[in-house]
């Protein structure tokens, strides 16, 4: 799998807000069947990269190339924002964005909107209850059920999503993204706010999704033990620039990464998760 051309190729991505350069000429790749992690201290520009990638910001410059199995090469930065998801790049958010007053099941139905809307004959077939629509709706419900089961959410399917616990909401968001049948799943700090047990389960889940569906996963995460355990590739950014990339082992031992996280080059090598806990990324002299 890894020998093929990458699913996503980002090159020269730059995002400027007024005078502030949040992302400066970043390049990265994500492959189908890989878990690619994007790490870096707070404020390094990781979420901004995500926002450019998923169509929420128009990058100042750069190229976001997606190799779509049926549509060929697509430059994501040229699409209207909402079209990015229709090309299979779907994300979750750092501060969970569910439809809080809709039930979990409804959240998963909304995720399948694009296909269902066409099947409902722009509501005409749906209003008339034609059989084509009915079977499409049944298929959508079945897919929703599948993901509810998979993420152990069946019990709360009819609850309002906003009433669930934090950990459950995180799972609903992943289930919702997966219900769109993505090519590349982009997760923005999926382990934030989870307890160690939940984090471990999340790792297993991501590995099994990769195994079973063979999709690409792009991950922003601060939990270094999780990143190091499940990632195939890690990209490190600092101050909007990429400073390293490689396998978890390569990155762990990269001097610039250690410097970025620890600030003091002469200090003893410290495991990255300790550095994260100390949060000394910003405290540079």
């Amino acid at each position: 799998m890894n020998s093929a051309l990458p699913l996503l190729e980002v090159s020269g991505l730059t995002m400027r807000f007024g005078g502030l350069v949040a992302v400066d000429g970043v390049g990265l790749t994500a492959r189908t069947g890989d878990i690619t992690a994007l790490i870096g201290p707070n404020g390094a520009g990781k979420t901004t990269i995500f926002n450019c990638l998923t169509g929420f910001y128009k990058p100042t410059s750069g190229r976001l190339l997606l190799r779509h199995p049926s549509r060929g090469e697509v430059e994501l930065q040229r699409l209207p924002g909402f079209q990015v998801a229709r090309h299979g790049v779907v994300r979750t958010f750092q501060n969970i964005r569910l439809f809080p007053r809709m039930t979990v099941l409804e959240n998963l139905m909304v995720a399948q909107h694009v296909g269902l809307m066409a099947k409902s004959g722009f509501s005409i077939a749906g209003l008339l209850g034609l059989s084509g629509w009915r079977s499409a709706e049944k298929g959508a419900i079945d897919k929703a059920r599948l993901w509810l089961d998979r993420l152990e959410l069946t019990r709360v399917a009819d609850e309002e999503a906003g009433n669930l616990s934090y950990g459950m909401q995180r799972r609903v968001e992943i289930a919702r993204a997966m219900a769109t049948d993505p090519l590349l799943l982009c997760l923005d700090e999926p382990a934030a706010g989870l307890n160690p047990r939940e984090t471990a389960a999340l790792g297993e889940l991501l590995l099994s999704i990769r195994e079973q569906f063979g999709i690409g996963i792009l991950l922003i995460e601060h939990d270094m033990s999780l990143v190091m355990r499940i990632s195939d590739q890690v990209h490190v950014v600092e101050y909007g620039r990429k400073i390293a990339e490689g396998t978890p082992d390569q990155v762990r031992n990269d001097e610039r990464v250690i410097k970025a996280y620890l600030g003091e080059p002469e200090e003893e090598e410290m495991p990255a998760e300790v550095a994260q806990d100390l949060n000394i990324g910003e405290a540079r002299p």
Binding site: F82, R97, V110, R176
Partner: peptide
Amino acid sequence: EDEIACRSLGI
């Protein structure tokens, strides 16, 4: 409920 989430789902 959330326009941004809508866009992220291709709506």
